[in-house]
Design a protein around this nucleic acid. Structure first.
Lengths: 227, 227
DNA sequence: AGACTTAATATTGGATCCAACTTATGGAGG
DNA sequence: CCTCCATAAGTTGGATCCAATATTAAGTCT
């Protein structure tokens, strides 16, 4: 997803990192559950050393929580955390969009349209995971055009933090149509090199997911008694 | 290993992480230089395992660069990187400041003044390191008041990225006076609960350092022939 | 002399082992 | 029945060891 390029023989820690991301995303490592290093390492067929280094990366991204001598646990997103993530995304994506408008090339825009076509195709096929992946490619094509590597990194972390919930949104067919329209509007704004319009469209695009996620997380918090 | 530390018994990786930060900050690990794990581990009196975990954290923060099978090297800041860091700081610190204005307590403001007093005192004593530390406490008191942990984390990373150069700025007595005035203006804006004014003052405060650093980094790049 | 091969040396990556600490378990006493 | 303490089991943290790869040095051939 992030760096799943093939070719150079991967190190074990990179492999484990990928598996961990997948496990967290798929929910087989549920939010809040402790991570037993021995069991996981055996499951992955590796020793604990590369597992621990991968966990350190995830800790830095806030995907897992670490307490010395107590070990790691999968992070849980409280509603407040979730809203903060989206607020920061709004701020940083605005900056990235404005930078991108002045630098984006015709090829980038083609990639944008390709990614969007993949989103629609995956949506029709009902392949939620592929849809989420294409959606991410769509948005990061724009973000990459800004040429700001640190913003890019932060945004990747923020996207990862809420990725667990993304399938929720795409599961609904109505939302899929909505995404279709909104992506079109985004592409149009890019074509027109209209930064203000682009930012407006991006905000609009985000607002839909915020509502869906907020409702879900709030429900979960009430259920689990996080008060 | 000398256990001359206070508080909860630290793990070795935390100790090593602190030492690494110090070494990078002080320049004894110079930007661009490769990190020989064996030598460093011996120097710190530990094995390579905790060292590597600490390096993974620094990699996540962008303080070191990692290439599989080639090892780690201390990161170098190109001018473009530097400007990006400050641009992101401007954006995120504006958000933090606006949130803080509505939530900051009288005690927080007292802490702000205390930290500033420490800045001035250290400045007079010519203790650059202490001055930088107090300055950081000053700014993060404000940032903490925003109650946005992710913004806080990002800002810490951004501050760390440029900390190597900070002593440069504080070395100059004129800059020290300038900081004194600007901090006062910031505190006044907080007291008045004037968010717009606060953001203006923060921007102004940042602009001074940008000039100093830019000139320095540009000079270094020309010297070292970074194209 | 320079380019290419091949051997040596250095360095990183990962596995195993042991120590230190934390959490769970089982009594003993109130 | 509950609390407190001691013990046992489980888990993490770190050191050492070995394998895999990268880098440097030496040698060979044109």
């Amino acid at each position: 997803m992030t760096d799943s390029r093939v070719g150079p023989p991967q190190t074990t820690q990179q492999y484990v990192l990928g598996e961990l991301r997948r496990a967290i995303l798929s929910g087989s490592l549920a939010p809040g559950s402790p991570i037993r290093q021995d069991a996981l390492a055996e499951q992955f067929g590796v020793s604990r050393v590369p597992l621990r280094e991968a966990l350190k990366i995830l800790e830095g991204e806030g995907q897992v929580i670490y307490r010395p001598r107590r070990g790691y646990a999968v992070a849980e997103l409280a509603l407040a955390d979730f809203l903060e993530v989206y607020r920061i995304r709004q701020i940083l994506e605005e900056e990235a969009a404005r930078q991108a408008i002045g630098r984006i090339t015709e090829e980038d825009i083609e990639r944008l349209e390709e990614a969007h076509a993949d989103v629609v195709a995956a949506g029709r096929a009902g392949e939620i995971t592929a849809m989420a992946a294409a959606n991410r490619r769509f948005h990061f094509t724009l973000i990459d055009a800004a040429g700001m590597p640190r913003i890019r990194r932060f945004l990747r972390i923020l996207w990862d933090a809420t990725d667990v919930y993304r399938s929720l949104y795409y599961g609904d067919a109505g939302n899929r149509d909505r995404v279709d329209h909104e992506h079109h509007a985004i592409i149009d704004a890019v074509r027109a090199r209209d930064a203000d319009e682009l930012v407006r469209r991006l905000d609009e695009h985000r607002s839909g997911t915020i509502e869906t996620f907020s409702a879900f997380i709030e429900g979960r918090e009430v259920r689990d008694g996080h008060h």
